[in-house]
């Protein structure tokens, strides 16, 4: 068992978990969506680690990029209605 690789896996999973918790518990729309986009980019790193470069490409471009842009516009609308 390679201890460095195990440490890498554990640190990656922990960071991702912390990011998911921060995104799920945030009350401001913009903050939540930005954290969610960061979550998506880190998720692409997980797919790269698990030897799935095709999934990493799709996640970075579609998951983080397209979904992020969609949800940013929704967050902008939600923030406007809050005021």
């Amino acid at each position: 068992m390679n201890p460095l690789l195990l440490g890498f896996d554990i640190l990656l999973s922990t960071t991702l978990l912390g990011l998911a918790l921060a995104a799920l518990t945030s009350r401001e729309p913009r903050r939540g969506v930005i954290l969610f986009i960061a979550f998506g980019l880190l998720l692409a790193l997980v797919w790269a680690r698990l030897r799935a470069p095709d999934l990493a490409l799709a996640e970075a471009a579609i998951g983080a990029g397209l979904a992020g842009a969609l949800m940013l516009s929704a967050a902008r609308r939600a923030a406007r209605r809050r005021q």
Partner: peptide, 21 residues
């Protein structure tokens, strides 16, 4: 480390996406 050469294309997409984000 992972021995997947295609990751360089993922890195290329990341670099383009960072500006857009």
């Amino acid at each position: 480390v992972i021995r997947v050469p295609a990751l360089i294309d993922v890195a290329l997409v990341f670099s383009l996406l960072a500006a857009v984000a």
